[in-house]
Design a protein around this nucleic acid. Structure first.
Lengths: 243, 243
DNA sequence: CAGTGGTCTAGACCACCGG
DNA sequence: CGGTGGTCTAGACCACTGT
């Protein structure tokens, strides 16, 4: 029955997106315990009838809830509420510039070092390259309103990204350059804490051995390691997400 | 400099065009530079014709690529390749027990402290409660093969979760108890680095002020803060994801 | 205003897999 | 085997927004 959507003043935003309403309603039944963990849900046809929608619409709602980790679906077995809801968090990984400007600050950048080196021993696992291979080693600083915000130490596989040789990193950061110039297929990101070493102490004004929040990222394309980067953040930096 | 004269293999799928094949093909054209950043894609009808599929199928493929951050869609304006691919990472947030057992180690647990307290001043922002309100304060340790793995300091809003009063946390961790007993609607997670304080030093064998990787998580339900937790991990702990 | 994506429908066929 | 979800189609209407 099509209920007349009378414009409720301030209460609920009665938006018409049927599959979204169905999704919300099912989610409500799950979170409020009406359908506890492991419960077998009615079939799509039955739900479609209940909600006065087509099976395709119900299918979309259930499919998204399944992707979100709330439900578990198997042919013939039906749809069940996940026994232990899958907890997963999504973090945005913005460019430093965007991150800084989003905070209302003025972005600044400085290149501190740029040279060709052999693969350092501690990166042998990341770059599976012959010993004579060369990497472009960069050290850069990113500022927010003139204050050091992030220290970036990066290694780029020259063989995989030959264009870097002619790239000028004095005014634009390597990250920004890379995302606009090189496609990638796989990324690995790690978050961890480490004691400040000489570099962080010098540029980010840490005391020796103080706790630094760090991010490491490695990027691949077509089976080759393109680049590996270590990011050190200024004090009290947090990575936060909400869901 | 758009240099990619890669001969496009004429991918004809006269038989069964699936939304997944379409998705892959479009992604290939984007990553291989055939459709560079900012490029306006053909409309859904045109693509549907090219791929020999219906518009709904193409719509699904494009919709998922949009959700994944590869494309950007707007009515009337059409579908474009994102100028700056949205980088987002998904992290699994497992239960400690699962995390430890997944590593092949034996899980161990110990409750170190349990008492009712008033809302500490540093948690006033998380728990918007009257001054006389009480929180259940817990300190627990999680072991991997007998070695301290994670220190958990937790505060639970007794008013919002009255059942905690009768819960016995001597053998099962509060996290495990909560996920099985209390529904939640909103979660905020933060990752950061902090110097070890007395508690971490004592239980996780850190030296004072050493770098500790920490996670904070706050959970809400129906507008109320349910619980807030600080997790300190043993040395060299990393949170990693790949995509 | 007109064109694009966003959503819905009714029906269909198929793949998988539990009983 | 048969029931369930997974996917596809053709057509339709609507909502948004650039021109």
């Amino acid at each position: 029955m099509p209920t007349s959507p009378i414009p409720t003043p301030i209460l609920l935003t009665a938006k018409r997106a049927s599959f979204r309403l169905i999704k919300d309603e099912i989610l409500r039944r799950v979170t409020q315990g009406q359908w506890g963990p492991g419960t077998l849900l009615p079939g799509e046809i039955e739900l479609a009838h209940e909600f006065g929608a087509s099976r395709a619409t119900v299918n979309r709602a259930l499919g998204e809830l399944s992707a979100a980790g709330v439900l578990e679906r198997r042919r013939k077995a039906g749809t069940r509420v996940r026994l232990q809801p899958l907890r997963q968090a999504r973090f945005e990984i913005p460019l430093v510039r965007a991150e800084i400007e989003a905070g209302g600050a003025l972005y600044g950048y400085a290149l501190k070092k740029r040279c060709l080196i052999r693969v350092p021993t501690h990166l042998r696992n990341h770059f599976k390259l012959p010993k004579q291979a060369r990497l472009l080693h960069l050290i850069c600083l990113h500022f927010a309103d003139g204050v050091p915000y992030q220290l970036e130490e990066r290694w780029i596989n020259v063989a995989a990204v030959p264009e870097v040789s002619s790239a000028d990193f004095s005014t634009i950061g390597p990250n920004e350059w890379l995302v606009g110039a090189v496609p990638y297929s796989d990324v690995e990101i790690s978050f961890f804490a480490a004691p400040a070493e000489a570099l962080s102490a010098k540029y980010l004004q840490y005391n020796e051995a103080e706790a630094v929040f760090m991010v490491e990222r490695t990027t691949w394309w077509a089976g080759q390691t393109l680049t590996h980067v270590r990011l050190s953040f200024r004090k009290d930096h947090r990575v936060t997400t909400r869901y």
